[in-house]
Amino acid sequence: MDQPQLQSTPGIPINGQNSKSLRWKALYKKLAKNKAAMVGGYIVVFFVLLAIFAPLLATHNPNDMVVMNKLQSPSAEHWLGTDDVGRDIYSRLLYGARVSLTVGFLSTLIGAIAGVTLGIVAGYYGRWIDSFIMRLCDVLLAFPGILLALAIVSILGASTINVIFAVAFFAIPTFARIVRGSTLSIKKLEFIDAIRAMGSSDFRIIFKHILPNILSPIIVQATLYIASAIITASALSFLGLGTKPPTAEWGAMLSAGRHYISQAPHITLFPGIAILLVVVGFNLFGDGLRDALDPKTKK
């Protein structure tokens, strides 16, 4: 007995590609009813497009310093003004989106892969393997995320790569606990016992039957964690432990502008707004995605 399939619509076969198409359409319809989720999705897409097309949209080289133009207010030449060394804030904001979003996506991806692997192994095999992995996760979760990331970056050194691994490391226990709980509930179902009785290997059972059935909470958690990853990475850069100058990064831009917040508040205002919008966008979209993927939601 295999996993349950969707109820078919008259005249439309439900297997294969049509089944996936119907699931995506049903998911989109649920998301479309959630206005906040759609707004969050549009915000995320907007900033992703800005990051992708930054070279085409930028009006200046983000690293060009013109000291004579420093601390200028927004104008026709410099749309969002200039910073303390005369660099164009608008152009740096676009290129900073590339760094911040890359750190958010990559750290979440790395943390999700490691956490999902550990969570499935712990939930499926149980016993001492489960106890060992969960106690290790408990130890990691005992430390606040920013402090753990600070410790890791302090040891490895300040760089974008090290920030990605530091933020990803803290994501591992969160994903592991979520996946472990989902795995425990799925492996108790009758169709898993039937597949095991037919002689399927543990590898096939885990990756062909269990993992596809627990993707929903993984996707939701990944979407929500990207926002946390961006905040953590920005905080590290603000403290001087993230992306090295002169590379544009939102947290580093906030740090550079804090000394001129009364004289030229635009230096910190626009990077702060960018961080706020991206984080709110991912949170709104993640919340909507959670509701849309929840099988108990009937609306």
Rank of each mutant, 00 (worst) to 15 (best):
Q3Y: 07
A256Y: 05
K35C: 07
L150Y: 12
I172Y: 00
I110Q: 09
I206T: 02
V39Q: 05
V121A: 06
I275M: 06
V278D: 03
G123K: 01
V179G: 02
L289Y: 05
A248W: 01
L277W: 02
S182K: 06
F143S: 09
D193H: 11
A114F: 15
T9D: 09
K188W: 02
V103C: 01
Q221H: 13
T174S: 11
A252E: 02
R290A: 14
F169G: 06
R23M: 11
D294A: 12
W79Q: 11
G16V: 09
P10E: 07
I12C: 05
M1W: 11
I195R: 08
A252C: 01
C137K: 05
G181H: 02
Q5E: 14
A76P: 05
G126K: 04
R290D: 11
S100Q: 10
L106W: 06
S131H: 12
A142R: 10
L94N: 03
F46I: 07
Q7E: 15
V139G: 06
A158L: 02
V167D: 00
S182W: 01
D64P: 01
P62Q: 08
P271M: 03
S234Q: 05
I192P: 00
V139L: 15
L94E: 05
K188P: 04
V103I: 13
S73K: 15
D294E: 12
